[in-house]
Design a protein around this nucleic acid. Structure first.
Length: 567
RNA sequence: UGACCGAUGGUGUAACGGUAGCACAACAGAUUUUGGUUCUGUUUGUCAAGGUUCGAAUCCUUGUCGGUCAACCA
């Protein structure tokens, strides 16, 4: 056998390389078990989608499992609302955690025991310094060593007693904290006696009022991975400096040791991704809720018309590495076009209608034209579209004085109406005051009917159209990027990043003219309005008698590029 | 003046000491009853300086630039 029969070796990311190496050496006995560990304190965004695809995708690729685990260690910020939205989003993206939905709060008893063990070992202590005092006078700075808390050498008995009374709720918030006893001079700030438990008299959305103390993320997270038997804990770069701490807890406790691997988080231009900024946009009303179609949230992308498949493709294309990156939002748009092009039913829709009257077409005549549902799908079939004397075309498809490169309609020009006839422009009506074109008059050539044309006539352009009297007049919403600049957060000291918001990011068209069949459009389906873009039924503002359409993304537009180049 | 991480075309991402490849973008052309799709072609890159080697994007040294870290947040 020739071994070099074009066996293209698949290029794999550095995490999969590590996994394959581990599988070779038997480090985890060939097992791969990952997890997606969100905090239920906000909605998921496209950056989370990268992590979800990585974790679930990796498990699938290596015949392993992936858990969904909520890191719910801060009851004052977390809620079931977020738990539910996160589950909905993960499911919608196409992933399944089966029966492995866990919560860090499931492990609170175990974690409490672990903390007791560390205290008994002399590796943890109860500190009674206030957080401000500790930060200001003991923690030190990255370039300056810290110093020991005066409570650092409390006896094991006293520590255990205090910890127990913390648990029982005997102290007010902030009175004490449990710290790991590591090294106040450590060059890694996270190793300078980090806190493990704090007092919080707060109701937890799952454990109720059972606890008056809650573990810190840094204490809970790595140990939760350990408890779940995670082999490869994939997380973002900023946790790299936390890894020595997670390892310290695990090694001091002598428990199972997962391997943490850090990768660079996703950054997208022309948008913001931080939970804080997203929250600000939502709460201050700059956008229409967490699922505003302009937001990079999963729910926003869903409402906008993005498909799960397109987001998975996107995650695949951007890759996984350790260097900082800013992905061009154009790649996300490419991903959804690529998907929708293959599956979206074609329709005709005129966004900004301009009436066109075919003067030699009988007043009361109507024809049903055969239209292809999807040229990319041989089995897609055809449909009938009504045609009549008065139709709408796109305003931008007519120019009174067209330049040479403009192929569409103009005085004296001939174009084809898709699925119908070749027409010639004989006249037009203009508002003398505004210069606005009001109506266009044409004649048609009956011998050029689509599918029956024997004339051999050639035209440079084909226009989409909608019969005026049959049109489904309804609302269409056009979206543009939410920000005018690539990096909205990059503002001068004291300036508000929200000044970069694009005031034209939402354009509402009250009465577009759509092909009548669109009145029966179904939610969740992406339609292509030919020569315009992909549109989907909005799930928030549509009513049975008035559907509202969202534009997911425009089609690629070479003419727009030519126009721009001309300016 | 601390610790850790990173640096490959415009943007991402491969190449694991042996011809710098792929995707997106851009540009040119072909096809097209969507200025869409598809197809063909083209342009553009190893942060810098030394060193090791027959041979360096890859190994070593130094430098430069960028990121992360000082919550009783995650």
């Amino acid at each position: 056998m020739a071994e070099n029969t074009e066996e293209k070796k698949e290029s794999i990311n550095f995490i999969h390389q590590i996994i394959e190496e581990d599988n070779k050496t038997g480090k985890f006995a060939g097992k791969v078990h990952t997890r997606f560990p969100p905090e239920p304190n906000g909605y998921l965004h496209i950056g989370h989608a990268k992590s979800i695809c990585l974790n679930f995708g990796t498990a699938k690729k290596y015949n392993g499992l992936c858990n969904l685990r909520f890191d719910d260690t801060n009851p004052t910020k977390e809620s079931d609302e977020y738990v539910n939205s996160i589950m909905e989003d993960v499911k919608w993206l196409g992933f399944d955690w089966e029966d492995r939905r866990y919560h860090a709060s499931d492990y609170f008893d175990q974690l409490y025991e672990y903390a007791q063990q560390l205290i008994k070992k002399g590796k943890a202590y109860v500190d009674s310094l206030s957080s401000e005092d500790f930060a200001k006078n003991y923690k030190g700075t990255p370039t300056k060593a810290g110093k020991n808390s005066p409570f650092r050498d409390r006896s094991v008995e006293e520590n255990l007693d205090l910890f127990d009374r913390m648990r029982k709720g005997e102290f007010p918030d902030g009175a004490h904290v449990v710290r790991a006893k590591i090294d106040m001079a450590h060059p890694n700030m996270h190793m300078r006696d980090p806190s493990m438990y704090r007092i919080k008299h707060a109701h937890h959305h799952r454990t109720g009022d059972k606890w008056h103390i809650y573990p810190m993320y840094d204490f809970a997270h790595g140990l939760s991975d350990s408890i779940e038997g995670i082999t490869h804990s994939l997380c973002t770069l900023e946790f790299e400096v936390h890894r020595p701490l997670y390892d310290w807890f695990i090694d001091e406790l002598g428990v199972y040791h997962p391997q943490q691997i850090e990768f660079a988080r996703l950054n997208l231009n022309y948008t913001v991704m931080s939970k804080r900024k997203l929250l600000e946009l939502v709460e201050e009303g700059y956008v229409d809720g967490w699922n505003d179609p302009r937001l990079p949230t999963i729910s926003g992308l869903r409402r906008r018309g993005y498909t799960p498949s397109s987001i998975r493709t996107f995650a695949d294309r951007i890759g996984v590495a350790k260097r900082d990156n800013i992905i061009d939002v154009g790649l996300l748009e490419w991903s959804v076009r690529e998907d929708l092009n293959k599956i979206a039913p074609r329709k005709m829709g005129v966004l900004r209608p301009l009436k066109l009257i075919i003067t030699n077409y009988p007043e009361d005549k109507e024809e049903l034209m055969d239209a292809t549902n999807n040229p990319e799908d041989p089995d897609g079939g055809t449909r009938k579209v009504p045609f009549s004397r008065e139709i709408y075309i796109e305003q931008s498809d007519f120019m009174e004085d067209p330049p040479k490169k403009f192929f569409r309609m103009g005085p004296g020009r001939e174009v084809r109406l898709k699925y119908a006839y070749i027409i010639e422009c004989v006249d037009f009506k203009k508002d003398p005051a505004t210069g606005e074109i009001l109506e266009v008059y044409c004649t048609y050539d009956p011998l050029t009917k689509s599918g029956e044309d024997q004339t051999g006539k050639k035209v440079k352009s084909t226009l989409s159209w909608v019969s005026a009297k049959h049109a489904y007049r309804t609302e269409v919403r056009l979206y543009d990027r939410l920000f005018n600049v690539e990096d909205p957060s990059d503002v001068e000291e004291g300036e508000d990043w929200k000044k970069n918001i694009n005031p034209g990011s939402l354009e509402i068209i009250e009465a577009a003219a759509l092909e009548p069949s669109l009145a029966q459009a179904k939610a969740g389906v992406g339609y292509q309005f030919e020569r315009q873009g992909y549109f989907t039924v909005d799930t928030k503002y549509s009513t049975p008698d008035k559907l509202v359409f969202n534009r997911t993304v425009t089609l690629k537009d070479d003419w727009a590029k030519i126009q721009q180049a001309g300016n």
